[in-house]
Nucleic acid binder design. Structure first.
Length: 259
DNA sequence: TTGCATGTTCCGGA
DNA sequence: GTCCGGAACATGCA
């Protein structure tokens, strides 16, 4: 679930329910998601603090809590759940922030993401590591610079967080399918006009996906056939091919996406 | 039972 | 230094 669009959805969900509210306590149900803190430490540091406006960079959510920051990453499975009643905890709920009026639960099935604490902006960037400009807001000129000068596969570049932050396996496939470009195309082969087209498609896919908080699972979207046993291209009905690019399973249409 | 999964990092080799 | 493939992390599902 969590690529740029999903994470942006989680960010606004968090803002809607937790912004400005005081943290009463933090319960850790599975310390396996704590990355640079402990159950005791996170409780001690956050108790009494107020959540500020959460930000998103790439697939990270950074939430100010008074003078410090909470960083959330969701790996391949994970999310947030706001609970106001006495709803029973799910087995994948790993941590709960009890705040004014309810509980914000961080859940993650596979625990590939996690929760970090940072004291300042410097520590925040040490934790996230180097990130390129966010895919949602990168400018066209900068996109050209990022795509040029390398023979690496387009899909690999799009997913490289150090280059452009936020795109994952599904968004990269969706963008390349909509742009009708083969995922293995060496970036340097793209003429400037094609880079423009790729940029425009990326913007369009992201705008529509962010609006829904996920890639639209609708006719006309590659996402709608992802996982189907005998997936067919939503455009031309050709059998979708599954190949490996950059080590990841890649859905593509051999007819629409020529090299 | 085996393979695969929306992410990231580390390691060895070319 | 660059790039690639594979393994690892932990868990559930087909």
């Amino acid at each position: 679930m969590p690529e740029l669009a999903d994470v942006e959805g989680l960010r606004s969900y968090l803002a809607r329910h937790a912004k400005g509210k005081r943290i009463e306590n933090v319960s850790v149900h599975d310390a396996g998601v704590l990355r640079n803190t402990s159950a005791r430490d996170i409780g001690r540091k956050l108790k009494g603090m107020r959540f500020g406006l959460p930000e998103r960079t790439g697939k990270w959510i950074i939430v100010p809590a008074d003078s410090s920051y909470v960083l959330l990453h969701f790996g391949m499975t994970g999310g947030l759940h706001w609970v106001t009643g006495d709803e029973k905890r799910d087995r994948s709920d790993r941590l709960t922030f009890r705040i004014d009026g309810g509980e914000l639960r961080y859940h993650s099935q596979r625990k590939l993401g996690g929760v970090w604490l940072a004291r300042d902006r410097n520590e925040v960037s040490e934790i996230t590591g180097p990130l390129g400009p966010d895919a949602k807001s990168v400018r066209k000129k900068q996109f050209h610079e990022l795509i040029a000068h390398t023979d690496r596969a387009l899909k690999v570049l799009l997913m490289d967080q150090q280059r452009i932050a936020g795109l994952g396996n599904e968004l990269a496939d969706e963008i390349l399918w909509q742009a009708r470009m083969h995922p293995s195309t060496p970036a340097s082969e793209l003429e400037p006009r094609r880079v423009d087209a790729l940029y425009a498609t990326m913007r369009d896919v992201l705008t529509k996906s962010v609006k829904r908080g996920q890639i639209p699972d609708e006719p006309g979207w590659l996402k709608s056939v992802r996982g189907d046993r005998e997936a067919r291209c939503p455009r031309c009905r050709t059998a979708i091919r599954k190949i490996k690019v950059g080590g990841r399973t890649t859905y593509m249409c051999p007819k629409c996406q020529k090299r």
